[in-house]
Design a protein around this nucleic acid. Structure first.
Length: 922
RNA sequence: AGGACUAUAGCUCAGUUGGUUAGAGCGCUACCUUGACAUGGUAGAGGUCCCCAGUUCGAAUCUGGGUAGUCCUACCA
């Protein structure tokens, strides 16, 4: 074995072996356990959030697989409509082409090409993370099977009246030329202006001043609204104003929607370009004047001078023209929320178009009940509130997208615009008895990507066929996801699955936090602070990291600052930490919080942990290979106190892991394992094994007992760790398992250690704890008195009772070896101790004779410090016990415990004070 | 505007039903290359548990109020 753990040498080899051996496929078993992967974008690549999420899922999957569940981790990818189409369009743009130059069919062929070319990236990355996904069942949302499911769902919902077509305002992305859903619009505060504009009354008697943040929409105004109770203006209701720049008169209307306090108190109404105005317009039956085209340039519906101008150009011209007419009252700076497309980043336009909608309100009702009834649980529970809040106020879901890449809507129109929905043109014709004289054309639009991913849990299992897999693995056990897509995806899956399967898609939703950088900033390409999990696994030099972060930036002017920040934060690039260390870091961060700050310092600690495990294994192999480990049936094996103690500790660790995983607390599970392996097995047990194995006088039975325990406890620890650190555990297990009497081709399919309460050995625990406290006392004296570690010293013990004497007899070998003692003996009754440095191990006095090795003043200072601490503690407990209320009202056991504590501390204090007097007297 | 969440060591975070000497990792200090491991060992230092009140014999923990920060939802043009 290498002296240090080299992850690169083993990871790929083991993954390939596992995959080739079919270990990732369901293995049978009575109870099923399944997770459907949140499908990543097929043309995307893995980021830290994926890495975190996959790590959690893989731990759950490996854990349950080892526990004998029939385990399926369904893998697949998503076609990511807008994102993917944008990428390919950008590639065309580089050649000076648009998708229209190619036409729909050729363009889609190009997208498929791109998918074939780049689609392997993410699946390769998933493999690098060690994810035990069942690749034999890989699915893609545009596969024929999943497309059939999408079509079936659309047609059935349409038949049931739950999908309809409607003309209404949508969020229009003028760059992408498509409608997008509410959720894809990000509204951020931006600095803008409030323009006050005078609209002359048609009567010629003065004017009304309106205030607007979008003066160009004036061209589409249908009315001016005032509050009906506003005495400044309500007498004008029913009159008309002459709309500036347009040869139109529009009415003054009364509507209580108007806020009298804001702006001028008069509101211009543009029903075709504002969601609130749209509602007002409907109430008052106002005309909807659509002054934009799909690019958000001014349409023919506006006066000629403005036609063809971009909306921002139009704004400038409108303002200038108004000013020239003297109608601009004032301009105020104003902070407003500007809606932008989350993909394109351009300002979203409320735009009047025909779109397809899902009646979400109807579907939401059972979906709310499923969570209320507990059929679906959120972990942590508070996310249920977020879910309810959104679901109870849900808006109909706009599902059509004016894209080419995606599931084309199965609807056909005749020349009159009558719509027919069906799987294909022939079925539509025969169903509706349409002869060849009727021309039909298919709807040009595709469906929102989330429409297909909403079916993911059952479409991947073969629906609409009633497959065996559906019967076994659906509903799935748990959905692992970030809170940012509860609305996008989780809610929609619940709605669709309940409707079509009459069962929930999953029993539990485990909502994890979002991975951020060390400063708590969201990782994003534009900020240039992203980390690629693969770079943490393999390492990357500074120059490559800089160029990776600055390549292809949306805002190239930021490249310099990104580069500087990167050079400052990672002057040496990133070291290669390996997959196991990365994964363990993720688990350690998986607490209940919403933000997960990823500090590279953490991963280094866990790489060291891997190395620790590696070296512990090296030690075990060196001492057990080709040795008698007492595995024969009936072998003469004697277990020491240390052996019995560590066996109990391993069981305790198994208990803690079980409890932690049951509540999705991977931070606690990882902490329990780290603690057990490093602080108990390595720090204590391995050291305690040395005095036995290296003692020529120790019996063969004792040596067998220690070797067997070394190997078996390590083997148990490996299995406990395997779901979190798959690679290193497999590598070591292969050579350690035989020494522990285990056979098997892989650790992956071994049973997970089950805790057994009986494994706690009170006598062994007491004995080892006693030993640890005495060792600590001696080491403290050594360290604080500057006694060289190599120098052998003698120790006297005093004030022990019969139990202490027994323990020393049992443990003196350990004690001598671990603290380098020449000898250790009891101070006889009535014998005056020589001048000593003193420390306490409980009641027991641990004395190190001073002569020649210890400075008197040092010892006085040291004792003084300890005495000070004890005095404070004694005073604190005395205060507590002196409080009549406490003694009377607190439970007797609590009072007794305090009293006992006080007695101990007082006795210790007295001992040290006496000792101080003695030393002073020297 | 409404709602949620967070505040514990220099940093990142644990802390179960109120009773602990408030813990871990990293970082820091001192000493140590001893036969698994310097990606290591040993021993330390370090906290007004955000503030104020309340409940209680007892509060990091429960209640109310405040402060600071983060986020979500809906938005006044």
């Amino acid at each position: 074995m290498e002296k240090t753990f080299q992850p690169a040498a083993i990871e790929t080899r083991w993954y390939q072996h596992w995959e080739a051996s079919g270990y990732f496929a369901p293995q049978g078993g009575e109870q099923a356990y399944s997770i459907m992967i949140p499908p990543p974008n097929v043309t995307g690549s893995l980021h830290m959030g994926h890495g975190f999420q996959e790590a959690i899922m893989d731990a759950l999957i490996r854990y349950h697989r080892m526990r004998g569940f029939n385990t399926l981790w369904q893998v697949g990818t998503d076609h990511a409509g807008i994102a993917t189409q944008m990428v390919v369009e950008r590639q065309l743009e580089a050649q000076g082409l648009t998708r229209h130059d190619l036409g729909r069919e050729a363009f889609n062929a190009k997208v498929w090409e791109w998918k074939e070319e780049s689609g392997g990236t993410i699946t390769q990355q998933l493999r690098r993370l060690g994810s035990s996904l069942d690749w034999s069942r890989e699915r893609f949302t545009m596969d024929p099977g999943l497309s059939a499911a999408v079509q079936e769902v659309f047609i059935r919902l349409h038949k049931e009246g739950l999908i309809y077509r409607g003309k209404r305002l949508v969020n229009w992305d003028p760059a992408l030329h498509t409608a997008i859903s509410d959720l894809e619009v990000i509204a951020e505060e931006e600095q803008g202006h409030l323009w006050h504009i005078n609209y002359p009354l048609a009567s010629g008697e003065g004017y009304l001043t309106v205030a607007t943040t979008r003066p160009e929409t004036l061209l589409g105004d249908s009315a001016v609204a005032v509050h009906p109770d506003d005495e400044r203006f309500n007498h004008l209701i029913g009159q008309t104003v002459a709309l500036p720049l347009c040869d139109r008169e529009i009415p003054v209307i009364g509507d209580s929607y108007v806020d009298r306090e804001f702006g001028s108190g008069c509101l211009k109404i543009t029903p075709a370009h504002d969601f609130n105005d749209y509602e007002v317009g409907k109430r008052h039956d106002l005309p909807m004047i659509n002054i934009f085209n799909g690019d958000a340039a001014i349409s023919a519906a506006a006066p000629a001078p403005y036609q063809g101008l971009d909306r921002f150009e139009a704004r400038k011209k409108v303002v200038a023209d108004l000013e020239a007419l003297g109608l601009l009252a004032k301009i105020e700076p104003h902070v407003l929320k500007v809606p932008r497309g989350d993909r394109s980043g351009v300002v979203i336009e409320p735009y009047l178009t025909d779109q397809w909608y899902v009646d979400a309100k109807t579907l939401a009702r059972p979906a709310i009940e499923a969570v209320e009834s507990g059929a679906i649980n959120f972990v942590p529970r508070q996310w249920e509130n977020t879910y309810y809040a959104w679901m109870r106020d849900i808006q109909d879901w706009c599902i059509s997208r004016q894209l080419w890449w995606g599931h084309r809507i199965p609807a056909w129109y005749d020349a009159q615009g009558k719509v027919y929905v069906g799987p294909d043109e022939d079925s539509v014709r025969s169903e509706h008895q349409l002869g060849p004289e009727v021309t039909l054309r298919q709807d040009e639009d595709v469906l929102d990507t989330w429409f297909s991913s909403a079916l993911w849990t059952f479409s991947t299992l073969g629906w609409p066929q009633e497959t065996r897999e559906l019967a076994i693995f659906h509903p799935s056990s748990v959905l692992v996801t970030g809170f940012d897509i509860i609305f996008f995806w989780v809610a929609r899956m619940i709605m669709m699955t309940l409707h079509f399967r009459n069962e929930v898609p999953f029993h539990t939703v485990y909502v994890h936090g979002l991975v951020r950088d060390a400063e708590g900033q969201k990782m994003s390409k534009s900020k240039g602070n992203v980390l690629d999990p693969i770079d943490l696994i393999d390492g990357i030099d500074l120059e490559s990291l800089v160029s990776k972060r600055t390549a292809g930036m949306m805002q190239p002017q930021l490249a310099a600052s990104v580069e500087a920040a990167t050079r400052k934060q990672f002057p040496d690039g990133l070291a290669a930490y390996g997959t196991d260390a990365l994964r363990f870091t993720y688990y350690s961060l998986a607490s209940t919080g919403r933000d997960i700050k990823f500090d590279v310092g953490r991963i280094e600690g866990f790489r060291n942990f891997c190395n620790k495990i590696w070296n512990a294994a090296r030690y075990v192999l060196m001492n057990c290979e080709s040795q008698d480990c007492g595995l024969e049936p009936g072998a003469d094996v004697q277990l020491s106190l240390a052996d019995r103690w560590i066996i109990g500790k391993a069981d305790q660790a198994a208990q803690e892991v079980e409890r932690a995983v049951a509540s999705y607390r991977f931070d606690l599970a990882s902490q329990a394992l780290y603690d057990f392996v490093w602080n108990e097995y390595c720090d204590w047990y391995l050291e305690l094994s040395k005095p036995v194995l290296w003692d020529d006088n120790a019996s063969d039975a004792a040596k067998r007992g220690t070797r067997r325990t070394l190997a078996q406890v390590l083997e148990v620890a490996l299995r406990l760790l395997h779901p979190m650190m798959p690679f290193i555990t497999e590598e070591i297990w292969q050579s350690v398992a035989p020494l522990a009497g285990k056979q098997g081709a892989t650790i992956m399919l071994q049973p997970y250690p089950q805790p057994a309460q009986t494994a706690q050995d009170a006598e062994a625990n007491d004995a080892i704890e006693w030993l640890q406290s005495v060792i600590l006392a001696v080491r403290t004296i050594r360290a604080e008195m500057n006694i060289p570690p190599g120098k052998e010293i003698s120790v006297l013990l005093a004030k022990g009772d019969a139990a202490d004497k027994k323990r020393l007899a049992q443990n003196s070998q350990y004690l001598k070896k671990l603290t380098k003692l020449a000898n250790v003996s009891w101070l006889g009754d009535g014998v005056e101790a020589p001048p000593c440095a003193t420390a306490l191990a409980g009641e027991l006095e641990v004395l190190v004779p001073i002569a020649g090795i210890i400075d008197k003043d040092d010892e006085i200072a040291r004792l003084g410090k300890d005495i000070g601490k004890l005095e404070k503690e004694v005073a604190r407990i005395q205060g507590k016990l002196g409080n009549a209320g406490f003694v009377e009202k607190a439970p007797a056991a609590v009072v007794a415990k305090e009293q006992e504590k006080l007695d101990h501390q007082q006795q210790a204090l007295a001992t040290l004070q006496q000792q101080l007097l003695k030393i002073r007297a020297l």
